[in-house]
Structure formats: C-alpha cells, structure tokens
C-alpha cells in the first residue's frame, strides 16, 4: 500500500499511508482512537470507495476492483463490530462468505468445529445470541473457511475478558502456522506484542512509525507517548 488517501465525503481521513505486509507475516497497526486504523482496513478492502494511491495484493492492483471481487483476490475482513448477522444461525453465519480460489488453505466446516467446539454446540442458534467472545471467534472462523491468504482483523480483543483474549491469541498463532498473512489493528499493545512480527503506528491519518518486533523493547517509551498510555 503506497500513498493511500481516503475521504469520508469531503473530509479527508488518510494522508499518504504506506504499509507492507509480507506473506505469512503478522503486522499490527497501532494508534489512538480515531487516527484512521479502521479507515485503513476499510480502504484496503474497498469498503471506503473514495480513495487514491496504490494498493497491490500479490502484485496485482486491487484499487479499482468492485468490492465483491476483493475477497476473491484473497483478502478476508473481520470488522470491528464483528458483523454477526442476527437473522442468520451460527452455521449460516459461518457458511456465508463464499470460498475463494486463493492461495490460502480453506478450512472445512469439520476442522472449524474441531477448533471451536462452542460454535458446533450453538450452531442452530441465532448468531447474535452468542457471547461477545464467541461472536469474535465466529467472525474469524467464517473467514478461515474461505481460504483467503490474508486476513484483516479490527480490534479483535475489544471488550473481551482476559481468558477469551488469551484464546484469541492462541488462535492467531495457529493461523500463523497456516501461513496466513494477518493485518491486525489493536489497542491492546501487550496482546499485539505476543504475536506480531512488525508494527506500524498511526496518528491523525498518517503513518508515523514502523519497526520490527526485535526493535520493540527500545521503543517502549516513545510508543507509550504516541499511544497516549
């Protein structure tokens, strides 16, 4: 992603954002509330349409693709609000996103139920009757079923209890072994530190820092300042 700018109506939300995610890498995007992290993911996915700049995925420009073609290029999206549908059962939610012909490995329904036994138990109840943690698992699981090679995760730990956060952390480590690329937006810095290979920091619609996990310890102080913690 190079020089990405994005607008909501007349107001500009992103100013020349550069970002790289290499195959199999987990990249975390940090930043305070309202700096444009969600907008970055939504622009990459093509949900925010008013954009300029370059977005390439597997050496192919995806900026001009219609929204529904982007997933088929191999990118899966887990939104901040989780996007579980109330009028669909858990299993219908799980089966909703079409399987894409990407390079990633599509998990079968059986594999998913083995990994998430809770979902199997509740498969006939309405999706929104699940607990917050289960809904988050469902939101991630349904993307794993599609076989995309990259997954965009927007604050998966938001509002969840520590034990659930640990389980999601475990899950993301499993994804890594599958060779999936992950672009993770996270405010929970300690959670991100456990799984990310590379970090980006945003402020006011701009990318202000970028570093590998190995440089993390030396940056704690400046990071705390940038993140306002």
């Amino acid at each position: 992603m190079r020089g990405l700018e994005a607008w909501y109506g007349e107001s500009q939300a992103l100013y020349g954002v550069d970002l790289d995610v290499y195959p199999g890498e987990t990249v975390t995007l940090l930043g305070r509330n309202g700096v444009g992290k969600t907008t970055t993911l939504r622009s990459l996915m093509g949900i925010v349409r008013k954009r300029s700049g370059t977005i390439e995925f597997n050496e192919r420009s995806i900026l001009r693709l219609p929204l529904h073609r982007v997933a088929h290029a191999g990118i899966g999206f887990v939104p901040e609000e989780r996007g579980i549908f109330a009028s669909l059962s858990v299993e219908e939610n799980l089966m909703l996103p079409p399987v894409v012909a990407g390079s990633g490995k599509a998990m079968s329904l059986d594999e998913i139920y083995t990994l998430f036994p809770n979902l199997l138990e509740r498969r006939h109840s309405p999706g929104t009757k699940l607990s917050g943690g289960e809904q988050q698992m469902l939101a991630i699981a349904r993307i794993l079923r599609t076989g995309v090679s990259m997954i965009l995760l927007d604050e998966p730990t938001e509002g969840l209890a520590p034990v659930i956060i640990d389980r999601i952390g475990e899950m993301l480590k499993v994804l890594k072994t599958y060779g999936l690329s992950v672009l993770l937006v996270e405010q929970n810095f300690r959670f991100a530190a456990r799984i990310a290979d590379h970090f980006y920091v945003m402020d006011q619609g701009r990318m202000i820092d970028s570093f590998a996990v190995t440089e993390l310890s030396g940056r704690r102080e400046s990071l705390n300042k940038a993140l306002g913690v």
Partner: peptide, 11 residues
Amino acid sequence: EDSTLVQAFGV
C-alpha cells in the same frame, strides 16, 4: 442487515 459487509465477503 448489512449489504456492504456481505459484498466485502465476496458475494
């Protein structure tokens, strides 16, 4: 419920 998200899933 949310046509944009469904389209983002590739439908």
